[in-house]
Amino acid sequence: MTGGIGRPTVAVWKFASCDGCQLSLLSAEDELLTIAGEIEIAYFLEATREVKEGPYDISLVEGSITTPDDAERIRQVRDISTTLITIGACATAGGIQALRNFGDVEAFRSLVYARPEYVDTLADSTAIAEHVPVDLELRGCPIETSQLVEVINAILAGRKPVTPTHSVCVECKLRGNLCVAVAHGTPCLGPVTQAGCNARCPAFDRGCYGCFGPAESPNTPSLAAWLEEELALEHPDLVRLFRSFNADAPAFRRESRRHEPEEVAT
């Protein structure tokens, strides 16, 4: 970490992603000017064409690895970064595009593109940590702006960031949300999903859909069994529930696989 060294240089990198997580930094409206004063934005194409040469103190990496070129590029980013922080579900778990990991990429390519041979892609969409060492992962689809600001704050102060890995349920209870699972019978991934969003969806009467990925000790088989027995979810429902933005996060991947029809399961 760069605590105490003054004004760290920061680079923001994009891999396979929608740019939403990078935008979260620009969305930090109240803090943005202060942040810009405390850190030196050295490489952030979404915000400015001005580029300063590396190496960089901090690299924020958005997106997953889906092409051979990107698999090489992330290694270069790692080489020129003191601290590498991945931001968002794509970078930490492969993102929604990791749905390809459950299908046949060759079939997609030949069906979707007129000239499939122009498309150079990997079979899987994978998390950054599967390619290079990562110092800190920020979850979410997209990340929570306040968590990113907290991490920048912590780096500047040379302290550990407050980014708990417990369940979303803890945030619901702290906030005083009513439990939509128990009181409304709404399927909710909160008990197996990592906190960080301040329980946004349950606060609006919606079940958690797991965009922050698996919590620290996710007992997905038990939750899935309850959803099946008590809330009458069927196997295809369970596959869809666990297979979204964090489809390839190991705990969610295993759980969705468990509910696939047997002849397709691998």
């Binding site: 907290e150 407050v162 369940s167 349920c169 803890v170 008990p191 919590a215």
Partner: peptide, 23 residues
Amino acid sequence: CLACANCTLVCPTCFCTTVEDRT
């Protein structure tokens, strides 16, 4: 058990806390 902590948070007597420092 989901280790989700709901039981302890709805319990009217559970009193465990932590502290969070922010700058």
